[in-house]
């Protein structure tokens, strides 16, 4: 009797301290979130301010008057080419770009991480070296190559190189694969599985978190990139959102800042949605399904 009571008390105590810890956790997490969300709130507020209020009342988070027409003005784009066009283009470039990048990166990473072949070290270091050279320097030679191929003014220069994967993701996935015990590979191999079989059956399910991370980054990086679209796309009907946004603001002429902030806000929506959608898979990563033997 006595003992049962103490057990109950103990449980109660544990519960209480757990709840207390929960409260501390949420207070902390919410406080940090406030810092993190400030820019979005500021951006949305600015996108609703009148042109003179944007600058005379920069810090305020609540517009004195709501100017929803900023969105209409921004959406109308340039000379009849609306943001519907720019969004469509961005979706094509970022969507296919992400697909190509992630698939290729996973394949290449597996090759480096789990297959032994002559020259793998050399190729790996060359691969890393390409990451260290500022790409500003490669822009012009690359432009000349794509010009020779007659690819200027198409999405090809933006998409085809992605079929080769991205060094950042290749290296990242390599590191993830190397965290997976080799025993699994070996067991599969004894069962008569080929290298490709191992990749699909053993490795791929285990690196889902890495692939999801790669997809989120790749989408965002492609979405925000403006230098590639600037150089390779000539026809405004092919402009991406990031490029169109930059065409709004010019230091030497009148800039409709309300429209800039409005379209900037809209341009964040797909990136956030992609994040929210994909991060689901981050949580349900393989670690919890207990595939590990």
């Amino acid at each position: 009797m006595q003992q049962a009571l103490t057990l109950d008390q103990l449980k109660l105590q544990q519960q209480r301290s757990k709840r207390r810890r929960g409260v501390v956790y949420y207070v902390g997490v919410i406080l940090i979130a406030a810092f993190m969300l400030y820019p979005v709130v500021w951006l949305v507020a600015s996108s609703l301010k009148a042109p003179d209020e944007i600058w005379t009342n920069v810090a305020s988070l609540i517009p004195s008057e709501f100017h929803f027409e900023n969105y209409a003005e921004g959406w109308s784009g340039f000379g009849g080419i609306t943001f519907a066009t720019f969004f469509r283009n961005s979706f094509i470039v970022a969507g296919f770009g992400t697909l190509f990048t992630v698939v290729s990166s996973a394949i290449v990473a597996y090759g480096f991480a789990r297959v032994k072949f002559v020259g793998s070290g050399i190729w790996f270091s060359i691969m890393l070296l390409t990451l260290m050279l500022p790409n500003q320097i490669l822009m012009i030679p690359q432009y000349i190559i794509f010009n020779q191929l007659d690819w200027i003014n198409t999405f090809l220069p933006l998409l085809v190189p992605k079929l080769g994967g991205d060094v950042f993701f290749i290296f990242m996935i390599i590191q993830f694969i190397r965290g997976i015990p080799v025993d699994l590979d070996e067991a599969a191999m004894i069962d008569g599985c080929s290298k490709t079989g191992i990749f699909f059956r053993i490795i791929l399910p285990q690196i889902v978190p890495a692939l999801v991370t790669a997809a989120i980054f790749s989408f965002y990086w492609t979405w925000e990139d403006f230098l590639g679209p600037l150089v390779y796309l000539q026809d405004p009907n092919l402009y991406t959102v990031s490029l169109a946004l930059r065409a709004f603001a010019d230091t030497g002429s009148v800039t409709n800042w309300g429209a800039v902030f409005a379209m900037l806000t809209l341009s964040l929506v797909p990136v956030i949605l992609i994040f929210v959608f994909f991060q689901r898979y981050l949580v349900e990563g393989i670690a919890t399904t207990g595939l590990k033997g």
């Binding site: 340039f78 000379g79 065409a247 709004f248 603001a249 010019d250 030497g252 002429s253 009148v254 800039t255 409709n256 429209a259």
Partner: peptide, 8 residues
């Protein structure tokens, strides 16, 4: 080069 109004 320019901004929205010039483009339009």
């Amino acid at each position: 080069w320019g901004s929205q109004s010039r483009h339009d």
